[in-house]
Structure formats: structure tokens, C-alpha cells
Design a protein around this nucleic acid. Sequence first.
DNA 1: TTTAGTATCTTGCATTGCAAGGTAGCATAG
DNA 2: CTATGCTACCTTGCAATGCAAGATACTAAA
Lengths: 106, 106
Amino acid sequence: MNIQFKKGVLELCVLSMLLERDYYGYELVEHISKHIDISEGTIYPLLRRLKTDGFVKTYLEESQEGPPRKYYTITEEGKKACDELIFEWNHFVQGVNTIIKGDRHE
Amino acid sequence: MNIQFKKGVLELCVLSMLLERDYYGYELVEHISKHIDISEGTIYPLLRRLKTDGFVKTYLEESQEGPPRKYYTITEEGKKACDELIFEWNHFVQGVNTIIKGDRHE
DNA sequence: TTTAGTATCTTGCATTGCAAGGTAGCATAG
DNA sequence: CTATGCTACCTTGCAATGCAAGATACTAAA
């Protein structure tokens, strides 16, 4: 898989998943990697950035299967950012597809 | 426009345009920027990379409207790379859309 | 005790897009 | 002749982000 394609898109993926319910980091990796290759070394720094930007909040919860889990909740600001990212993403994909399909109205 | 989205995709855009006919650098910027924001400081290093990788060849042609133009022609290797990139791109977009549309079959 | 699975995190590197700037040819306006 | 503007090429250094590799620690089973 082309690493570069993912730049900026993973943020969108995480935020839109959090729109549905709270997730913990490891769980996000598991789900996202069903569709896109992703590693833990990517997700944890990304989650930290999202928290710094105020797009998510966190809380800890104990687990019977291992160490405690840090859950992420999306904030109102995060929802706005997510909406905007989805809009930009759709617009971008359309632009790229227009270019690669040779539809240059010339 | 989200800068990160573009990472790796511009290579795909340039190669697929060259599939159709030869272009010179400035012309590529003009056409691509109809659909996606792009600057010259991006395209020239990219074209150099494509040449280094053997995906394109170049030749010069004089112009009545300014300095000589450097035209780019896609090579057989470039065509193969382009095919693969288009395949990966479509697959990637599908994966992302599945994630952001909440279609997680759970 | 060791292995494996879950779950968190960090460091340093590679890639690539961009702003800002430079060079140069041609044409037109002043 | 000079200045401006458009065409067309290029470079440098910076910013962003994904990853490999590694560290830590809890639980459970071999």
C-alpha cells in the first residue's frame, strides 16, 4: 500500500469512527487495519495530536484482558473538524478522479 | 485544501495525464490546478523524481512565448507504475469510504 | 518460567508538498 | 531604453505525518 496516500486521511478515519461511539487506541488500529494498513506507531501520536487540538477527550477504563484502556471521545470541535474533513475529502477525490480519467474538457 | 491529502497522489495525476499526451511542467501545473491546488515548487521536484525513477523521459522544444519548454514523455515503466497507482488509489478510496461511512458490519 | 495476546507509549527516519526566492526569454507600454 | 508582466524553468529549507523498531506492563495459558 502506498504510504503517502494515507497522509491526513487517517485523522479523518479516526474522527469519523469516534462519531459513532468511543474507541480505545488499540481497537481503532484493529478496525482501521481491516481496510487500510496501519501500525500502532502511527495511531498513538495521531491520537495525541487530536487531543492537543481539542478534537477528542480521553478517559481510562480497566480491562480483564490486559492493561487499562484509554478511551477517546469526540468533542463538538472534533465533530466540526470531521464534517469539514469529510467535505474536503469528497471534493478532493472527485478532483483527482477527474484528472486521472482524462476528463479535461479540451 | 488539506495539503496532506495530496501526498503521493500528484505523482498519479501527472503520470495519468502523460498517458494521454506529452506535457511540459508549467502546463501540468496549469491543468492540475483547475481541480487541485498545486504550486510550481511541488511539480518540478516531482518531475525530477519521476525521471530519476525512469518513469518519464524529457526533451526540449523552443517556444515563441518565452523560454524553451521541457516536455515529459511517459515510459513503459511509467505506464506500469501508473496502472498500479490507479489500482491502489481506487482500492484506497474504497477502504476510506467504507470506514467513514460507518459500514463496519458489526 | 516462558510465551503469547492485549494495550500503552517513544524515538528517529523517510517522504513529499510548499513558500519563497532566483534566472531568463519575450512582448508591450511608457 | 526601461519597466512591467507573462511565460517557463529551477532550488533551498521547512513542516507534516506515517512507520519501523523498540520499551513497558498486565493477564493467562503452556
